[in-house]
Computed example of a mutant assay.
Amino acid sequence: MKGRTALVTGASSGIGRATALLLAREGAAVALVALPGAELDRAAEECRAAGARVLPLPADVADSAAVADAFSRAEALGPVDAVFNNAGISMVVPVTETTDEQWHRQLQVNLTGSFFVARQAARVMAPRRRGAIVSTASELALTGQAGYVAYTATKGGILAMTRALAAELAASGVRVNAVCPGAIDTPLLRAEFDTADDPAAERAENERSIVLGRLGRPEEIAQTVLFLLSDDAAYVTGAHYVVDGGRTGCFPVGSLARPQEDGGEQA
């Protein structure tokens, strides 16, 4: 990523923070977009310590004017040609108890905010005929889970938007892809566990549902994002990469077929 300028949203925590740091270590100048606060400042310091030029940009991605301003200010680092469209929130609520405000806020941040970021990225990248955008969807864009109706709707929308953007921007030399993380050990997920009657049991139950038997690490998602933003993925667009320890693709439990006495097999 040497010589590249990357903009990362949701950069103060979890996957966004890990990805910003990895991009910095790989030589990119990095603009960190997140809600204002001490964590954004600390994330910026981590990236500076990696030797990168860094610009923290406090902004709410649900505000289109703030998104446009963040891109404009990021150009001080150089032409933005790599965007990790990652900011998002999650509220675990049964559908019958989901309020209008909870629905709209998740829609505004996760889907509308992602659209604002992708639209602005297209506006600056397409005229230059170079760039890559990666958006964060979720394993829940591919499978359902109780309590996540609103969240799942937003993440499914991100996958659909990714495919349409990839088709529209291909002629302009801009690639668009998505990453679908599974259960990743982030402050957001830990906060969800903490709402359970027994957080440790809730975590253990999640781990049992994953073929690899553990939660993912933010750094593992960051590696996939790095690949998709880099020229190593020059022939990849309109795709979604599932990084979930096998949870959506495999049964987490089961037994191997055993030979029967007649030489057949039983499952």
Rank of each mutant, 00 (worst) to 15 (best):
C47M: 03
G213D: 10
G10S: 08
P199Y: 03
V109R: 13
V93R: 13
T162E: 15
T96N: 07
R190L: 08
A74Q: 06
A76C: 12
P79N: 14
E192D: 14
E45H: 12
A29P: 07
M125A: 04
E219L: 09
A66F: 03
I133A: 03
A166R: 00
F251C: 11
E261R: 15
Q108G: 06
V176Y: 00
L57Y: 06
A233L: 08
A70W: 06
M125L: 02
A31R: 02
D232T: 05
I210V: 14
A44S: 12
G157A: 12
L169T: 04
P36Q: 05
D100K: 12
H104I: 10
R128K: 13
T224Q: 05
N86F: 09
R208K: 09
R247C: 04
A62H: 08
T224L: 01
A50Q: 12
A153C: 07
P79W: 13
E45R: 14
A68Y: 09
L35I: 09
S230A: 04
L21T: 08
A118R: 02
F193H: 11
A126I: 02
V236S: 02
P199W: 00
T152L: 08
T19G: 07
V83G: 11
L169R: 02
S230K: 00
P199V: 07
G144T: 09
S13C: 00
C250L: 12
G249C: 01
W103E: 08
E26Y: 02
A132R: 09
E46G: 03
Y235D: 00
F251V: 00
M91Y: 10
A59Y: 01
V117T: 14
Q120K: 14
F71P: 04
G245P: 00
N206R: 14
T195C: 11
P218W: 00
T143G: 07
P58A: 14
K155R: 08
L21Y: 05
R190P: 01
V117M: 13
A153Y: 09
A87S: 06
Q108A: 15
A49V: 00
A267G: 10
Q223L: 08
G157Y: 15
S114K: 07
V174L: 00
L215T: 00
D69W: 03
V8P: 01
A74N: 11
Q145W: 15
P127C: 05
V61F: 03
H240V: 08
T195D: 14
L111N: 04
T19K: 02
G16C: 06
T112C: 00
E46H: 13
L140V: 14
G245F: 04
W103I: 03
Q260H: 09
G245K: 03
D69P: 00
Q120D: 02
G3S: 08
S72W: 13
Q145Y: 13
L226T: 01
H240D: 15
A62V: 03
S230D: 08
A62W: 05
I133V: 15
D60M: 04
A29V: 01
A31D: 05
L189Q: 01
E46Q: 15
A52S: 13
G51A: 07
A24N: 10
Q266L: 07
R105V: 15
G157W: 09
A82S: 05
G78Y: 06
D262R: 06
A74D: 12
C250A: 13
A38R: 12
V149L: 11
S255D: 15
V124Y: 09
T195H: 15
